[in-house]
């Protein structure tokens, strides 16, 4: 029996993400409350459902944490939050070459935030369901891992459940930035593995093109305390000391759509030319071939 209420579990989603005080007339349509409040003050989240995601309000693009453990749910600033991954999350790396990407020998204990909820572990996902975001962008956002600072490696991967190999999305041992495309109005959870206990700072950036062609971008640092013996205060006070890649940007179609803008078409040419040289060096795990967005990012990085 799949006992979703204790060890394995359910995706609590829009129904619970959403606080819809007045359902639509048909009673069937759910919406996120656009006026969900932003909580202030520090919070340590160690159980329950939490999402990282962009918000868009009055022309202001921010990256926040949607705290679904609060009733009703609230948004929080990343600097106010430590995600605490308790030792209940420890699993041993299997003796299976399909999991060599974890980077640890079989049998090594690692902390795992799973794709499907373990009730005893904070459950971290991401969503693009803020009504302001959904109304402002057309296709989706690029969620970019810019860097990780911590005592060990961090790997984020998906089990698609299609008999294929696990799909690695982010790997802190690989070059940055590591862009990931997320469609609008989606909500996703993946597996997070932390190789060693301690404080991790995860630098992320969310970039999107608005309906009017304007580009918005925001960066934040996610604070994670891994292991029961890691002091939470250390995670609040830790400072990201490494250097981060230059601001990531997707090539804006606006740059190529305006023939009267003499400089822009040239810009695109430069992006492609430089990218063609660099793209080979930075191949992303499990991917076929070069990527336009990546090329642009590589260019930005090298510029």
């Amino acid at each position: 029996m799949s006992q979703l209420t204790n060890s394995i579990v359910a995706v609590l989603t829009a129904a619970t993400l959403a606080v819809a005080p007045t359902p639509a007339p048909d009673g069937l349509t759910q919406t996120l409350d656009p006026n969900q409040s932003v909580a202030s003050g520090r919070a340590v989240l160690e159980k329950g459902h939490v999402d990282l995601g962009p918000r868009y309000r009055d022309g202001d693009w921010t990256i926040q944490i949607h705290d679904d453990t609060a009733v009703p749910p609230v948004w929080r600033k990343l600097s106010d939050v430590v995600l605490r991954v308790r030792d209940a999350a420890v699993e041993r790396v299997p003796d299976d070459p399909a999991y060599a990407f974890v980077g640890q020998p079989p049998g090594t204990p690692v902390h795992v935030v799973p794709q499907t909820q373990n009730q005893d572990v904070v459950w971290v996902g991401w969503n693009t369901q803020d009504p302001g975001v959904m109304a402002a962008i057309s296709r989706g956002v690029t969620m970019n891992l810019l860097g990780v600072q911590g005592p060990g490696g961090v790997v984020v991967y998906l089990q698609s459940g299609n008999l294929g190999a696990p799909q690695v999305l982010w790997d802190s041992t690989k070059p940055f930035p590591q862009p990931l495309w997320v469609e609008t109005n989606t909500h996703t959870h993946a597996n997070w593995i932390f190789a060693k206990p301690g404080v991790y700072l995860v630098a992320v950036e969310f970039t999107a093109e608005l309906l009017d062609g304007k580009q918005v971008t925001g960066r934040e640092t996610l604070r994670i305390a891994v292991g029961d013996s890691t002091p939470v205060d250390d995670a609040f006070t830790a400072v990201y000391t490494g250097s981060l890649p230059g601001t990531g940007a997707t090539p804006s179609p606006a740059a190529v759509a305006e023939p009267d803008d003499g400089g822009s078409p040239l810009l695109v040419g430069v992006l492609v030319g430089a990218g063609a040289v660099l793209v080979v060096a930075l191949i992303w795990v499990l991917v076929r071939g070069a990527r336009i967005r990546r090329r642009a990012l590589d260019q930005e990085e090298s510029a």
Partner: peptide, 12 residues
């Protein structure tokens, strides 16, 4: 499949 994000993670 149980998850479909991998359908297009590169946004092309």
């Amino acid at each position: 499949p149980q998850a479909v994000l991998g359908r297009h993670v590169h946004g092309e």
